[in-house]
């Protein structure tokens, strides 16, 4: 069951400021507590299904911090999958909105109670709707990247997904379309490799040594990194993004990381104890480097826990969508291309 990674004792480089590390810690902690709250909601019957990203915080939080958030081709387009809660949080999303989607309330800003938790959508930040079919986002992302290439500037498209999903044809589509010599695209192709597709270990299914090796055949720059280390993740993401922004070419980043509550509520969502926990490792590092004390971290944890508890209570009383709304938004009357809002 072990992912083969040692518990992370992050060798954080000096070029990340203490302030940034403290900020990342806060977001990682909040992201973890958010997922734990969502799992609790599921177990208490305040939601039908849970899926999310506990264990991916060390990668997802830096990703969110580095994204140029905004609307339109001058900002980054985000083609996420269902484990990016930490990224959304780091981008500035309110945790209560994830709870709303968990409870499928009418107030859920991502889907109005239509979709599972973790299926974000936010046009004002270029977060395109997360969709359940594995890997389709890899076929769609080249389209936004194409628009960005034409628009000029530094906006890029970012696509994320798991390791098992790379077996789908969409992954090959992404590599081919991103690297066409006629028009290479500013696309950051991310694979978060937790070595699992639900219950199936990758070793029996994938012959490639590293997923990132597949980029080489397309002359796409690539790297495999320790996604359990927030310092490494931050620095590698920053470097990869800078390359894509500047060169207007694709880059593939494979982040090896842990899955700490199994696949989803369908597999019980219980804590997994034999995989490296990026948060624990980072907290030890923060203590050792005297950037935070245990007491400070405990206080923060208590504060966030309370905040999420309050949010949970609030969401419980919020209205559900009504049945007469099912036909709303099948078609749009508003023309965004023309400039309608």
């Amino acid at each position: 069951m072990s992912s083969g990674l040692r518990p992370v004792r992050s060798a954080t480089e000096a070029d990340l400021s203490a302030e940034l590390l403290v900020r990342m810690h806060g977001l990682m902690l909040k992201a973890r507590l958010l997922e734990e709250r969502l799992i609790q909601m599921y177990k208490q019957g305040d939601g039908y299904f849970w899926i999310g990203g506990p264990g991916e915080e060390a990668f997802n939080v830096p990703l969110g911090l580095l994204i140029d958030k905004g609307s339109g081709p001058q900002h980054d387009y985000c083609h996420f999958h269902y484990r990016n809660s930490g990224t959304l949080l780091a981008m500035g999303a309110e945790p209560i909105d994830a709870l709303r989607q968990m409870k499928n309330t009418a107030t859920d800003p991502y889907s109005g109670g239509r979709n599972f938790v973790g299926h974000y959508s936010r046009r004002e930040w270029n977060v395109v709707p997360v969709s359940s079919p594995i890997e389709v986002q890899y076929s769609i992302a080249p389209g936004t990247a194409l628009a960005q290439k034409r628009a000029g500037g530094r906006g890029i498209s970012i696509v994320t997904g798991g390791d098992a999903g790379t077996a789908e044809g969409d992954f090959a589509t992404c590599l081919v379309w991103a690297s066409r010599p006629a028009n290479p695209l500013p696309l950051l192709i991310i694979v978060t490799n937790n070595h699992y597709g639900i219950s199936t270990r990758s070793e029996g299914q994938h012959g490639e040594t590293r997923i990132s090796d597949r980029a080489r055949a397309f002359n796409i720059e690539s790297k495999t990194i320790d996604g359990n280390d927030p310092g490494v993740s931050y620095r590698e993401l920053a470097a990869a993004m800078d390359y894509v922004r500047t060169e207007r070419k694709p880059f593939m980043l494979e982040a090896v990381l842990s899955r700490l509550h199994g696949h989803s509520s369908a597999s019980g969502a219980n804590a997994v104890l034999d995989e490296a926990d990026c948060l624990k490792g980072f907290e030890r590092t923060m203590e050792e480097r005297k950037l935070m004390t245990r007491a400070q971290m405990d206080t923060l944890r208590a504060e966030f826990t309370l905040e999420l508890q309050e949010a949970h209570k609030k969401v419980r009383d919020e209205p559900q969508p009504t049945g007469d709304t099912i036909f709303d938004h099948v078609f749009s009357e508003r023309d965004l291309v023309r400039g309608d809002q």
């Binding site: 389709v136 076929s139 389209g143 990247a145 194409l146 628009a147």
Partner: peptide
Amino acid sequence: RGIVGAAIGLALAGQ
């Protein structure tokens, strides 16, 4: 799949 996907992506980017 790439063609339909790219068309969706272009649409999302307002093209």
